[in-house]
Amino acid sequence: MKAGDTAAGEMDAGEIARMCAEAIWADDAASRNLGMQLISVEPGRAIVAMTVTDTMVNGHSVCHGGYIFTLADSAMAFASNTRNRPALAQHCSITFLSPGKRGDRLVAKAAERQLAGRSGLYDVTVTRDDGAVIAEFRGHTRIVEGILLPDPKA
């Protein structure tokens, strides 16, 4: 077998990532109730989208930053939980660059920058559908005990 090949009955890393995302999504009432959509997931990466609703707009008629942060945090959660090892946010920061407005579809693209031992570093860019950058988010994660999938080969 060559590097990257899988033996019969074994799943590849992409399949494991998708199964982990499905397991997390099933219990993620916060993301689902905000109308988020999981667009794609692969090892160390995820794309999550959300449309700004009337209830997400603040007194300045723009999307409240907490909702944008939550979208970015959810994208990081899916990206950091792709290897059947549960990871939680440890520290996050966000820089808001442009406002999201009522009706905007926001897309958060999370990418793993470093995974060393139990510590991960992720960058998330939040854009509007037209490509305008709304925010840049950086998050640190910590892998905790346990597994997401009881038997990833099942």
Score class of each variant (00 low, 15 high):
69 F>G: 02
126 V>N: 03
32 R>K: 13
127 T>V: 10
17 A>P: 09
102 R>H: 10
104 D>Y: 03
151 D>N: 14
54 D>V: 11
32 R>E: 00
126 V>Y: 08
131 G>Y: 06
45 R>I: 02
89 A>W: 05
35 G>S: 02
35 G>Y: 05
47 I>K: 13
46 A>M: 04
80 S>W: 02
47 I>V: 15
9 G>I: 11
70 T>N: 07
46 A>N: 03
27 D>Q: 09
61 S>Q: 15
35 G>D: 11
100 G>T: 04
47 I>N: 07
82 T>F: 00
91 H>Q: 13
79 A>Q: 04
2 K>N: 14
10 E>F: 05
112 E>P: 07
116 A>W: 06
30 A>R: 06
21 A>E: 09
88 L>V: 15
56 M>H: 10
48 V>K: 07
79 A>S: 10
27 D>L: 11
126 V>Q: 01
56 M>P: 02
136 E>N: 13
147 I>R: 15
88 L>I: 14
120 G>E: 06
22 E>C: 01
144 V>I: 15
6 T>L: 10
85 R>A: 07
22 E>T: 08
95 T>A: 14
28 D>Q: 06
59 G>K: 07
106 L>D: 11
69 F>Y: 14
42 E>T: 13
100 G>E: 00
65 G>R: 01
119 S>W: 00
125 T>W: 00
61 S>P: 08
54 D>S: 14
27 D>M: 12
152 P>K: 09
16 I>A: 06
126 V>F: 11
80 S>E: 05
103 G>R: 10
117 G>Y: 11
115 L>H: 13
103 G>Y: 05
137 F>P: 10
74 S>M: 04
148 L>G: 06
53 T>V: 09
5 D>G: 07
84 N>E: 05
103 G>H: 10
92 C>R: 01
49 A>N: 04
106 L>F: 06
95 T>C: 06
149 L>E: 01
25 W>S: 12
81 N>Y: 07
127 T>R: 08
12 D>N: 15
47 I>T: 15
65 G>E: 03
128 R>E: 08
10 E>G: 02
30 A>F: 13
9 G>Y: 06
84 N>I: 05
130 D>Y: 03
99 P>V: 05
127 T>N: 05
119 S>R: 15
148 L>D: 01
12 D>A: 04
131 G>E: 04
4 G>N: 07
74 S>R: 03
20 C>W: 07
154 A>Y: 02
132 A>N: 02
66 G>A: 09
139 G>M: 04
147 I>Q: 15
100 G>H: 01
2 K>S: 15
128 R>T: 04
80 S>C: 14
61 S>D: 13
60 H>Q: 15
36 M>P: 01
135 A>R: 08
19 M>T: 00
119 S>I: 15
43 P>S: 00
138 R>K: 07
134 I>M: 08
1 M>K: 14
98 S>L: 06
11 M>R: 15
25 W>D: 03
81 N>E: 09
6 T>M: 13
5 D>R: 10
45 R>G: 12
56 M>S: 10
14 G>H: 10
84 N>T: 02
132 A>H: 03
31 S>Y: 04
129 D>W: 04
125 T>K: 02
20 C>R: 01
106 L>C: 02
40 S>Q: 13
123 D>V: 10
125 T>E: 11
16 I>Q: 03
94 I>M: 11
122 Y>S: 03
109 K>Y: 03
53 T>I: 01
56 M>R: 08
49 A>E: 12
